[in-house]
Design a protein around this nucleic acid. Structure first.
Length: 265
DNA sequence: CTATGATGGAAAC
DNA sequence: TTTCCCTCATAGC
């Protein structure tokens, strides 16, 4: 479930759950025992995010770096941590008010501040970072012969956008995914960037990705993604705006969805 | 019950 | 470009 909004939300939730608590850090599943020992008994000073990366700043220049990948997930509970019910808990952190369990993440490691800088240097602009302006990613995009559908997925161009935001933001812009970066007008990308900023901020608040305007969904939002999206995972269904069948095709190894009528060059 | 794919990305070819 | 990591909801029998 993790695009950038999920990551930011996790950081906020974990900060408020733990405050400055001294934490018990462990690895019930056993694959992160030595790392957990480095952190056990410490209090988190701050939690930083960039794109899909989480950085928990512990004392002694020890930084817990987590990347959830496709299937990684945190669960959060109040009160004392129970014996893990289902699945393998790679990392558990317990404070005085509650605990978090981590399963399935791609990256869980304790790193130095220098290593953090190395990781950040590889990442592009994060739409959730208010200080970043659209011209920064556009400098890379406007030089690229790759398509905007490819570029939006590249974390060294824009950090935090994943397959859902890619499809949805292109639909909302009325832009074909197949337009090359170097052919993209600056005002079109500026509008996409601003839309991403506002969609992702809403995503942090709601803890889910909802991109449809109320007027395009009869004002109703159902469970299980019902009416949440314009095109994502709607292949073969009717476009909410024009009725054309939504199309799908693999792009950058992921299923891209778009409306061939509403989205053009 | 088993099979598959999923909001990701690194490593191996 | 393909394989692998790792977990779980959902689809299909």
């Amino acid at each position: 479930m993790p695009e950038g909004h999920t990551i930011r939300r996790i950081a906020l939730d974990h900060s408020s759950l733990f405050g400055g608590d001294v934490l018990a850090v462990s690895s019930p599943q056993g694959k992160f025992v030595s790392g957990a020992q480095l952190l056990d008994g410490g209090a988190i000073e701050r939690i930083d995010t960039h794109g899909k990366h989480l950085f928990y700043i512990f004392p002694g220049e020890r930084i817990l770096h987590i990347h959830l990948g496709l299937i990684g997930k945190f669960t959060l509970g109040e009160g004392p941590a129970p014996v893990p019910a289902v699945g393998a808990v790679r990392l558990r952190m317990e404070g005085s008010n509650g605990y978090v369990d981590l399963r399935g993440a791609t990256v869980v490691e304790v790193i130095s501040p220098e290593k953090v800088q190395t990781i950040l240097a590889r990442l592009g602009a994060d739409p959730l970072n208010r200080r970043t302006r659209w011209v920064e990613p556009f400098a890379k995009i406007s030089k690229s012969s790759r398509t905007i559908g490819q570029l939006l997925m590249e974390q060294d161009v824009i950090a935090g956008v994943g397959n859902v935001y890619r499809a949805e933001v292109l639909f909302r812009a009325g832009l074909s995914p197949f337009v090359r970066g170097k052919d993209l007008k600056d005002e079109v990308f500026e509008a996409i960037w601003k839309d991403l900023q506002s969609l992702m901020r809403e995503g942090v608040k709601a803890n889910r990705i909802v991109t449809t305007k109320a007027s395009d969904r009869d004002g109703r939002l159902g469970p299980n993604r019902e009416n949440w999206h314009y095109v994502y995972r709607r292949a073969g269904e009717a476009c909410r705006v024009c009725g054309t069948q939504i199309r799908t095709e693999l792009m950058v190894g992921r299923n891209l969805f778009w409306c061939p009528t509403c989205q053009h060059a």
